[in-house]
Nucleic acid binder design. Structure first.
Lengths: 163, 163
DNA sequence: CCTACCGATCGGTAGG
DNA sequence: CCTACCGATCGGTAGG
């Protein structure tokens, strides 16, 4: 909180005229992001698209959020452990729902014959790993064109490396 | 240190008869792991194999280390930031060398015509993201067969999702 | 917004 | 191995 106050140009105690606790600050940040992803998932689920196009939309949204909210996204993967019990459960419910939606779309891709039938949990984990840690890569490569980044990520995830 | 002492069944102060500091403990853990990966890279680089087989060996080694040293591996990605300046630079040098070796093998795969020519940094980042966060997935799926895990990870990374 | 200050916690030391 | 205790740091409050 002292570092944060320094950055804003006030004393640490003064921050408490604006927020009620450090945890609240983290909570609002994380829940804002979680709601963004929930919205992305709902829109994609309700869109009149095939499963592969839905997956591509999810990837595009994730890359977009990462480019637009790099700093907030950097907290999303690891910092939720510091939330109080109640908000932590709320956050994890949204996160679980997102993962379930993602898993279902991957399953649909396989069932429709577009994807190879592999362990869907491994496909999900691998895809989300790349998306979740994109922010750390992007932080050092901010000069890259967003559309190019999006295209390359889709390609490496969906088409794979092999020619 | 108090939690650690509790787990071992002594008082916190007694730990300092065995180690000189908390940082030293972290340092030895991380450097042991870093040396393991350095060894893996050197063996693969010197093996009489094609680039795709080399990549497969790197993936197999990473999966193996994750299964064998899950707890230590869980510290490898994020906790090096807490090392003192000197050991941090040492660690990062080993890490950079590993990444450079990995990047070169991916480049070789593309140059030999086995892989599509995409941005090699994105291919590297995506592959390492999956491998680096495998431990968190594996912690919840310890029942999976190691060879199956290895095969599925290779497949999702190299062949991709698409049929 | 600030000064002054709190109780808890942390890594670690002294001394036996 | 232990007890006793340290200085620094942290999130946060009181009171103006």
């Amino acid at each position: 909180m002292r570092l944060l106050a320094d950055a804003v140009g006030v004393k640490a105690a003064s921050l408490y005229n604006h927020i009620s606790s450090k945890e609240e600050l983290l909570r609002e940040l994380l829940m804002d992001m979680a709601r963004l992803f929930t919205q992305s998932m709902e829109e994609v689920q309700n869109a009149p698209l095939g499963p592969v196009e839905k997956l591509e939309r999810l990837i595009a949204d994730y890359v977009g959020y990462t480019v637009e909210h790099t700093d907030a996204i950097s907290l999303l993967t690891g910092e939720w452990v510091h939330l109080d019990e109640r908000p932590k459960q709320e956050f994890l419910t949204l996160r679980d729902n997102y993962e379930d939606g993602f898993r279902q779309i991957l399953t649909d891709c396989m069932d429709a014959g577009h994807f190879n039938k592999i362990d869907v949990d491994i496909a999900l984990f691998s895809t989300l790993s790349t998306l979740r840690w994109l922010y750390s890569w992007y932080s050092k490569h901010k000069e890259i064109n967003q559309l190019k980044l999006e295209g390359q990520i889709k390609r490496v995830l969906i088409v794979g490396l092999r020619k």
